[in-house]
Design a protein around this nucleic acid. Structure first.
Length: 196
DNA sequence: CTAAAGATGTCCT
DNA sequence: GGACATCTTTAGA
């Protein structure tokens, strides 16, 4: 009961995993320090059927982790200055991953604030690039197994009473895509874009 | 080899 | 609402 989410959790339809990750707790251990937060916003990305996905046109050096075993971290660098943290999730051998777009900080607040250069809790991790900066997630963690207790893993968590899941189109993909593959906790102040 | 876009964040008006 | 920073990755010549 006090162990990380098992591989079976991630070995399911990518879109279902994206939805079910809301409320789960991300744990980052740096030395004796522990950073913890609740996932409040995600996006699903698949394979050949999803033009917006890095894996849309087959395997490349960057996206190979998306084709590997579920429950691992897919971390990539973008816009010349930001990292994005994804969780590999799919059934069978098709590629798939879930982008973690926003987190509600729970522990290690002062450390996160220092890393971010911000004190307002609301802006510590309310965006994919902010999440990786607050939690010190960089390229070194690409491919990291999230199902074993370590410097980066996920733990069980729940939505609070009254919290509802909302969905929308994905953000920042420059295409006319109408799929509702973005999931977030409605009315949660730590979501990147409450209305989108 | 070269070029263009990019699953973004910040500061400014 | 818009400019701009900054550089990796990928596709195409």
């Amino acid at each position: 009961m006090n162990s990380p989410l098992p591989r079976a959790f991630y070995s399911r339809e990518t879109i279902h995993v994206a939805r079910d990750l809301l409320g789960m707790r991300l744990v980052r251990e740096i030395g004796r320090r522990q950073l913890i937060g609740r996932i409040v916003e995600t996006e699903a990305y698949r394979g050949a059927d999803d033009p917006a996905s890095h894996a849309a046109r087959g395997m490349t050096g960057r996206n190979e982790v998306m084709f590997g075993p579920p429950g691992h971290a897919y971390v990539y660098f973008t816009y010349g200055m930001h990292f994005c943290f994804n969780i590999v999730a799919h059934k069978s051998t098709l590629p798939g991953a879930v982008l973690v777009r926003a987190i509600e900080p729970l522990e290690g607040l002062d450390y996160m604030a220092r890393r971010r250069g911000r004190t307002n809790l609301r802006y510590l991790a309310n965006g994919p690039g902010k999440v990786t900066e607050a939690f010190a997630i960089a390229r070194l963690l690409n491919g990291h197994d999230l199902t074993i207790p370590s410097q980066l893993h996920l733990m069980e968590g729940t939505l609070r009473t009254g919290e509802r899941v909302a969905r929308s189109r994905r953000i920042g993909i420059g295409s006319n895509d109408t799929r509702l593959w973005r999931f977030y906790v409605r009315s949660n102040p730590f979501v990147s874009r409450p209305h989108a």
